[in-house]
């Protein structure tokens, strides 16, 4: 952790709003991106980012500095996102899968939109743990060890979650990805 960040955390613990604002400004955007990729929903992502920092402030005393602040805040964001996903899956009826156009258009924009649709379907098809592990590895660049720390699972379970996520993505995307690049 940078010295200035450690100092900001220490001051924020004493209730210093300016210090905590520094942390919010540094990580707000990346927590939003993580929240969006985990929930797939802009409104939920806004909710994730706000709730994450509220929880972080209230739990600052529990932060022991062993993990980076970045990893610690991601853990809070991931846990809250998973709670949202679980709650949503309990209450929502799954929507029927939208039909992907079977037209063989040469228009790359259409193809790109199809890939985007398939990607969203694939992400929604992942379990909460698979989605979290994949997002943290693929988009956030965390190591498997760090992801295990964030999600509170063993490295072997982390790897298996990523493997399963990639398998599912392949099933959804392989028919399209040949022409994507």
């Amino acid at each position: 952790m940078h010295e200035s960040e450690a100092a900001a955390v220490a001051r924020a613990r004493t209730g210093d709003g300016d210090a905590f604002r520094l942390l919010v400004e540094r990580y707000g955007r990346s927590v939003f991106r993580l929240g969006y990729r985990l929930t797939g929903n802009e409104q939920d992502a806004e909710d994730v980012v706000q709730e994450t920092f509220l929880r972080a402030f209230r739990q600052l005393d529990k932060y022991d500095g062993r993990a980076s602040f970045h990893t610690w805040i991601y853990r809070i964001a991931s846990n809250y996102s998973l709670d949202l996903l679980r709650a949503r899956r309990r209450t929502e009826t799954p929507e029927p899968e939208s039909l992907v156009s079977t037209e063989t258009s040469a228009d790359r924009r259409v193809l790109s939109e199809q890939i985007g649709d398939r990607l969203r379907q694939a992400m929604d098809d992942l379990s909460s743990q698979e989605r979290s592990a994949f997002v943290l590895r693929h988009y956030e660049g965390l190591s498997i060890e760090e992801i295990g720390g964030v999600l509170g699972i063993a490295q072997s379970a982390t790897k298996n979650s990523i493997f399963r996520a990639v398998q599912k993505l392949r099933r959804y995307l392989e028919p399209f990805s040949g022409g994507a690049r």
Binding site: G116, L119, M123, V166, L169, R170, S177, A180, R181
Partner: peptide, 12 residues
Amino acid sequence: RVLNAADGYAPP
């Protein structure tokens, strides 16, 4: 190709 295509899942 699949994993590169997954990069397109960009937040707003």
